[in-house]
Design a protein around this nucleic acid. Structure first.
Length: 422
DNA sequence: CCCCATGATTCACA
DNA sequence: TGTGAATCATGGGG
């Protein structure tokens, strides 16, 4: 065991931090020859370490740790190490927050995937649904589907994240233990361990970033699918169509609802009030105008139906004075919210240019004649109610329409014009 | 499976 | 920018 004590003798000749060693240690190695001898011994011992048994090595290790000079030597070695190799890396230490990671985090948070609780997901889904608009019943089905998928993604994400964190912690602990253990035999400062931990964390966070990236992609795909599904044609409900038609036919002279009117219509139709719902209404009116104009004959019946409806409502409204009608938004003469282009639109459309104002009796007679006709009117009477000429003359919204396009293909060309011009 | 109705999209125009 | 016109695409009925 004297070997060990010799090995552990702090010797200036070994070239280690002489300055921090007690002065007396320098006194033993005065002559260069003796120093060389010592170095030779030490090297010899090092070289033969591999030949030693495990027990022997353990014993030596223990002796080393217990040596009185060990702490001092250790700290000096650490200091040197710190000053040489590790100082280079210190520059990289202060890494700024990765903007990419920040973006991913923000997105996951916004999508409700990385939110604090499950409610976030539904909030995001609701936002998406509101942004996309849609009729509420269908909306809720798609909505729940979207939410379910999002929750699935969220769960996978959290599971994976947890796994990574656990693996990271395990690995970090393992490495720390290893380094602590090794720090008994080689100079490893706590700072170095810290640095190593930081490196491990960095590595794991880059893996986490990949996870976040793919989660974001999954959410984006889900979202686009959700929105695509929404883009699919979905017919308005019967009620919604009725409301839109009522507005259309009661504003036949100028079927261009204002933004407010569109909003109001969207609400009444049960469409989520949003930019999309407004364009849905706009689409509807755009299609309606063009299709109506193209084939007025085909829409005669429909027009008459709504004429009667509106007229009846108007009657009811006038009878109930200020009572508002819950069934239809358009009540001529009342303060209905859609009555933006004047109360006489419908009647101007019905009665042409004669300029008659609305009278309850006229509506009654209209109803009477319609019931006599065994339906909603046909032939002359219906043509008189809604003729292209009336619309052109009144609203002028068909200015762009050529006479041929206005003429109904279902009727003899010109018949409409001749009828209405009389 | 075909046809039709209809919501959505695209493009040109004023 | 809103609209008309053409067109696409889809859903539902026969």
């Amino acid at each position: 065991m004297e070997d060990q004590s010799r090995l552990l003798q702090p010797h200036p000749g070994v070239g280690m931090a002489v300055h921090s060693l007690p002065p007396h240690s320098q006194s033993d190695g005065g002559d260069p020859e003796g120093r060389k001898q010592d170095i030779g011994d030490i090297l010899q011992q090092i070289m033969t370490i591999t030949d030693q048994s495990l027990d022997e090595a353990q014993a030596k290790k223990h002796a080393l740790n217990c040596h009185r000079m060990k702490p001092a030597l250790f700290s000096v070695l650490c200091e040197i190490k710190e000053k040489t190799g590790l100082s280079i890396r210190s520059a990289q230490e202060e890494e700024p927050v990765d903007p990419q990671l920040m973006r991913l985090d923000n997105m996951l948070l916004a999508e409700g995937v990385a939110g604090p609780e499950k409610g976030g997901g539904s909030a995001a889904a609701a936002a998406a649904a509101a942004a996309a608009g849609g009729v509420s019943p269908d909306n809720s089905i798609e909505h729940s589907d979207y939410r379910a998928k999002l929750a699935q993604i969220r769960q996978i994400y959290h599971t994976e994240l947890e796994k990574y964190e656990q693996a990271c912690n395990e690995f970090t602990t393992h490495v720390m233990n290893l380094l602590r253990e090794q720090s008994r035999t080689r100079p490893i400062s706590p700072k170095e361990i810290e640095r190593m931990v930081a490196i491990i964390h960095r590595k794991f966070s880059s893996i986490q970033m990949q996870l976040k990236q793919s989660t974001c992609e999954a959410v984006m795909i889900l979202r686009s699918r959700f929105l695509d599904a929404r883009r699919k044609r979905r017919n308005f409900s019967k009620q919604a169509t009725e409301i839109l038609n009522e507005y259309f036919y009661s504003h036949l002279s100028n079927p261009y609802p204002s933004e407010e009117a569109k909003e109001e219509l969207a609400k009444k139709c049960g469409i989520t009030v949003s930019q999309v719902s407004l364009s849905q209404v706009s689409n509807w009116f755009g299609n309606k105008r063009i299709r109506y104009k193209k084939n007025i004959g085909k829409f005669q019946e429909e027009a008459n139906i709504y004429a009667v409806k509106t007229a009846v409502n108007a009657t009811a409204a006038s009878q109930n004075s200020q009572a508002n009608s819950p069934v239809t938004p358009t009540s001529a003469g009342s303060s209905g919210s859609f009555n933006l282009s004047g109360s006489g639109d419908m009647f101007m459309g019905m009665q042409g240019l004669n300029g008659d104002t609305y009278q309850g009796a006229q509506v009654e007679s209209l109803r009477h004649s319609l019931s006599q006709a065994g339906g909603y009117g046909d032939g002359l009477s219906s043509n008189q109610m809604y003729s292209p000429r009336d619309i052109r003359a009144n609203g002028g919204w068909q200015d762009a329409a050529t006479p041929s396009s206005v003429t109904s293909p279902t009727e003899a060309p010109g018949s409409v014009h001749s009828d209405t011009s009389n």
